[in-house]
């Protein structure tokens, strides 16, 4: 005979604090992984492209203008720009902020390398976000419109960087962004299980550090071109205005006063 037992009182009263895993529920997995992926492709890809393109400035205003013109001459460039740069960047930035504000950094208590990196990834993310907002606004959506006036690109940037404050901001942002990207690649490999082992992660860490440092160096050298006295007072525009849909051949003769060495060679 079994005793008719009254319902047992809850042995575990309702949990407070961090709640258990919501097994298989919700969509945060998708969004979080998308965030991770967008950081690499396309944003990471764009960052590399951007730094390499800017490095053309080393070759003078005209070369730089040609690079700008080339990029703006890509088919469906506006679609590409929005679909592969602005929208992913905006998503990565906003969701990144969402991630960052939900973390509770404790590097003050546990000052370990990985924990510092965790913290720095968030700091650099914020820096990059703030920087990119102003950068996109000031360089892409205000002032001379570069898609139409690629020849004005060098001067526009040069003007910006002649302000020492802006220069400082650009340098900091360059370092921060490259760190964020390089460490992001490392994180991507670790989190997606590409480098599960301790050794794989360490070796890949060296690789990421090398790539990040290299990229940053390229970026800074490219940046230096704009303040290089050699190119001081670059002409406001080195090219005729580009009509939408019409791609004019690049001038083969450097405009007057140009000190563009590459143009000089072509002559």
């Amino acid at each position: 005979m079994a005793t008719a037992a009254p319902p047992a009182p809850a042995s575990n009263p309702t949990l407070r604090g961090v709640q258990p895993l919501r097994a298989g529920q919700g969509h945060s997995y998708f969004w979080r992984r998308l965030h991770s992926l967008t950081g690499l492709i396309p944003i990471g890809g764009f960052l590399i492209e951007h730094i390499l393109s800017n490095y053309e400035a080393v070759n003078g205003p005209l070369a730089y203008a040609q690079q700008v013109k080339f990029l703006n001459g890509l088919p469906l460039v506006r679609v590409l720009e929005w679909a592969f740069i602005f929208i992913p960047l905006l998503y990565h930035a906003l969701y990144g902020v969402f991630i960052a504000i939900r973390g509770r950094s404790n590097v003050n208590v546990y000052p370990w390398a990985g924990n510092w990196s965790y913290y720095m990834q968030r700091v650099t993310g914020y820096i990059a976000f703030a920087y990119i907002v102003q950068h996109v606004w000031r360089q892409r959506f205000s002032g001379v419109s570069l898609p139409e006036h690629p020849g004005a690109a060098f001067a526009k940037v040069q003007h910006e960087l002649h302000n020492p404050w802006m220069l400082a901001i650009y340098v900091i942002a360059m370092v921060a962004t490259c760190w964020h990207f390089a460490y992001g690649v490392w994180l991507f490999a670790a989190k997606w299980g590409i480098t599960p082992g301790e050794k794989a992660r360490r070796n890949f860490g060296y690789a990421c550090a090398a790539v990040g440092t290299g990229l940053c160096a390229l970026g800074l050298v490219g940046m230096y071109a704009f303040i290089n006295p050699k190119y001081a007072n670059a002409p406001a525009d080195v090219m005729p205005e580009q009509q939408p849909g019409i791609v004019l051949p690049a001038p083969s003769v450097a405009p007057p006063n140009s000190v563009n060495p590459s143009a000089a060679i072509r002559n």
Binding site: L21, R22, G24, S28, Y29, G103, Y118, Q121, K191
Partner: peptide
């Protein structure tokens, strides 16, 4: 699910 492996940073 929410709170799963993806939350690891």
């Amino acid at each position: 699910g929410d709170g799963g492996v993806q939350e690891c940073s």
